[in-house]
């Protein structure tokens, strides 16, 4: 692979959050499922999101039983599975996106079983070679992560853990000690999905987490429109939009999804 980026993994994420902090804003990190609505289009959409100013990406690997996901991500990843998308194919997608000039951080996001089936060490090595920067695994809490984390640590790849509004102070410390790259803060008690309003307890939750850690916080679950982005922009280091973009694509097509992303990105400028 041609090295087109000055750094990768933890260093790249560190650089991202330094840059956005200097610009006094949060990083916009959309999610897209590889293979939705089909393989080629998913890559085109990610490329288009890159062009409208996305700061980083969550690259979704499909799983047959995604227990942390609401209907929209379930639907998109189910279609991806029907399109024959595998872990290998997702890593190929990352490599192809890099070869097309995409420079933003890319986090591979998937449930644990397909990742283990691929092989933890092989996955970390191959993802690194393909140009990914780290992993987000929603069913892997820090207590269970040692096996996977050892390879991430060795290769300077990020392994992100989650904190939720239900997390105790003790768990905030545990996650803070173990998370690398950033902490994925869950904006809503629940599964992923577009929502009309943000949770009222969000400011207090983020304030509590901030007291326990200096690791960058990236917020996800339910951030769906420009006004949400404006609200969370001063609170966190980055935010993820997933279901709202998929839903927009589902109802109104590719251009509409990109237009929504563009409006969200403009809201934090």
């Amino acid at each position: 692979m041609v090295e087109i980026r000055p750094s990768y993994g933890l260093a790249t994420l560190h650089h991202l959050f330094e840059t956005t902090a200097a610009q006094n804003r949060a990083a916009f990190m959309p999610y897209w499922a590889i293979g939705y609505p089909d393989y080629d289009t998913s890559l085109e959409i990610i490329t288009a999101l890159s062009a409208i100013g996305a700061d980083g990406f969550e690259i979704g690997i499909p799983f047959s039983d995604p227990i942390a996901d609401g209907m929209m991500v379930q639907t998109a990843t189910q279609i991806a599975l029907e399109n024959g998308i595998t872990v290998k194919k997702c890593l190929e997608a990352v490599q192809t996106l890099r070869s097309r000039g995409l420079t933003q951080p890319m986090m591979v996001m998937g449930y644990l079983n397909p990742l283990l089936a691929y092989g933890a060490e092989k996955l970390v090595m191959d993802a690194k070679a393909a140009g990914a920067d780290g992993f987000i695994v929603p069913d892997l809490p820090p207590e269970e992560a040692h096996y996977f984390a050892q390879y991430c640590q060795r290769e300077n790849m990020a392994l992100v853990f989650f904190l939720a509004p239900t997390s105790s102070e003790k768990r905030m410390q545990l996650v803070s000690e173990n998370a690398t790259g950033f902490i994925y803060t869950v904006a809503q008690v629940g599964v992923t999905g577009a929502r009309d309003t943000l949770s009222e307890e969000l400011p207090e939750f983020i304030a509590n987490v901030r007291q326990q850690t200096s690791t960058p916080l990236v917020l996800g679950f339910g951030i769906s429109k420009p006004e949400h982005a404006r609200t969370v922009n001063p609170m966190v280091n980055g935010f993820i939009v997933a279901s709202a973009l998929l839903r927009e694509h589902h109802h109104n097509g590719k251009e509409a999804a990109i237009a929504l992303a563009k409006a969200i990105r403009a809201a934090i400028e």
Binding site: P141, E143, E144, F162, P165, T166, S167, R171
Partner: peptide, 21 residues
């Protein structure tokens, strides 16, 4: 930690880990 030898454990989203505790 809920292990039976190498089997068992607790591979769940963070939101419900406190509830399992």
């Amino acid at each position: 930690r809920g292990y039976y030898g190498e089997f068992g454990g607790r591979f769940v989203p963070e939101t419900i880990v406190p509830a399992l505790d």
